[in-house]
């Protein structure tokens, strides 16, 4: 008998996502889980996020740390994706002088590009280095011609953002928003779908029947910089923080 292979985790999480969308927004509690035992350090999440949100040079929402340890031949290599943890206690929101960034009811920390004055106080306030500032650069600015993939609009926060001189998001702080514009249309975040190691889980941890809830409860999960007590919403399995 050929054991029927269970469905890809993306399908399961997509159904969890659709179920969560039926609930009112304040009932949802979005969270992410990264199983470092399955992360192979391929950086697809970093590049997919760049492509999805048309991020210019100097702006990056998710990076993967590569750390080598041990002595030949007992060597270890660890790969740790780091991104905005959408903490419950938000030093970045506190630091913003003009209330341009807030913690939404569904847990996502967003930025109102039209309100942010670009003072970069929040960049210094975040202990995870999760925020970067858009200084208006383009990848193909010094080549014969700026290319369409940098001219097309990003769809962040469900609006069309053309990166023209002087317009937001140029001059603003920018950060991961769990691909809010995708979630609201029933799509999983970009870094989740393109994770070839199937190491990135996403969902509403209030929903007991969701995959992410199931895995968080059946593994000992950790968060980055626990001692700061910011209650991050990105959990890790197999995290060896002493290496960081």
């Amino acid at each position: 008998m050929s054991t029927k292979i269970k469905e890809d985790i993306l399908i399961r999480m997509q159904n969890d996502l659709k179920r969560a969308l039926t609930k009112p927004v304040e009932k949802r509690k979005w969270a992410m889980l990264i199983d470092l035992r399955k992360c192979v350090g391929c950086h697809a999440c970093t590049i997919a996020c760049k492509a999805e949100n048309v991020l210019p040079p100097g702006v990056v929402y998710r990076r993967v740390l590569e750390i080598e340890s041990g002595k030949y031949p007992d060597v270890e290599r660890h790969f740790v994706p780091v991104l905005c943890n959408h903490c419950d206690k938000t030093p970045c929101v506190d630091a913003c002088p003009v209330k341009a960034t807030k913690k939404r009811v569904d847990g996502i920390v967003d930025i109102d590009y039209n309100h942010c004055i670009g003072c970069r106080a929040c960049l210094n306030a975040c202990p995870y280095g999760a925020r970067t500032s858009d200084f208006g650069k383009f990848y193909t600015q010094d080549t014969p011609k700026i290319q369409p993939y940098e001219l097309r609009p990003a769809f962040e926060y469900q609006k069309k953002w053309y990166r023209k001189k002087g317009n937001s998001p140029i001059g603003n702080a920018r950060k991961c928003h769990f691909c809010l514009h995708r979630i609201e249309s029933g799509l999983l975040p970009e870094c989740v779908v393109t994770c070839i190691g199937k190491a990135t889980y996403f969902g509403d941890i209030e929903d007991k029947s969701s995959l992410i809830f199931e895995i968080i409860n059946s593994n000992n999960v950790k968060v980055l910089k626990e001692k700061l007590k910011l209650k991050p919403r990105v959990y890790y399995i197999g995290l060896k923080e002493e290496l960081l």
Binding site: Q14, T46, K198
Partner: peptide, 10 residues
């Protein structure tokens, strides 16, 4: 349903 590809594909 978007599926997984590597950084070069992206």
């Amino acid at each position: 349903i978007d599926a997984a590809i590597c950084p070069k594909g992206q």
